[in-house]
Amino acid sequence: MSRALIIIDMQLGFDDLDFWGSTTNFGCEENVARLIVEWERAGEPIVVVRHDSLSDSSPLHPANPGNALVAAVDRAGRALLVVKNVNSAFYGSPDLHTWLQEAAIEELVICGIQTNMCVETTARMAGNLGYSTVVVLDATRTFDLTAEVIGLGEVHRSADEIMASTALVLQEGGFARIATTREVIAAGATG
């Protein structure tokens, strides 16, 4: 089975905690870098996804320095760069699904930022499109959320709670298998 590493939105703008708020899993970037090394060693395709926000005030807007990819990802030998402005990498340019089909890719290993936003949305769509999908949870990161929700009042969830909920929903909903960086690298070495 052929596989591709899909790296979602590993951009400098996510280091702006004044904009995003509290975060978790500061080992995310290191784990993504470890996955890149494994994929490059195996000669397997790497797809890098970049979020180009439409909001001028977002650190991820193309005019802002935060739009740039983190160093490890920017240096990666990639087969494809997908640029998007929505949550799913399948709604970017060029068309990810078409590229994956033409490359005969059957398995997607997904990592990046934010766990519960673009990573989750891309994983759900990948599962629905029939790909064998793995989300490398310790190679993702997200942020605390607090909001007024109709019918619930003010709701707060920590980044750790959000990551756990996302993993549970993806796994139990049948969208993706949840794994660690170590497990994925070990499977690649033996597979």
Rank of each mutant, 00 (worst) to 15 (best):
M1K: 14
I7C: 02
I8C: 14
Q11C: 00
L12Q: 15
G13H: 02
G13E: 08
F26H: 15
N31D: 14
I36R: 06
V37L: 05
A42V: 11
H51W: 02
H51A: 05
S53Y: 03
S53F: 02
S55M: 07
S57G: 14
L60V: 04
P65L: 10
P65R: 07
V70I: 07
V70K: 14
A72W: 05
R75G: 00
G77C: 03
R78G: 03
A79P: 00
V83M: 12
V83R: 14
V83I: 12
K84Q: 03
N85M: 01
N85W: 02
N87R: 13
S88L: 09
T98K: 11
W99V: 03
W99H: 08
E102A: 10
A103T: 09
L108V: 03
V109F: 06
T115V: 08
C118M: 11
E120P: 12
T121E: 14
T121R: 09
T121A: 12
L129W: 00
V134L: 04
V135T: 13
V136M: 03
R141I: 06
R141S: 14
F143M: 08
L145I: 10
E148C: 09
L152K: 06
L152M: 07
V155N: 01
H156V: 08
S158W: 15
S165H: 08
T166C: 11
A167M: 10
L168T: 13
F175Q: 04
I178V: 13
T180G: 08
R182Q: 15
V184L: 05
A186H: 04
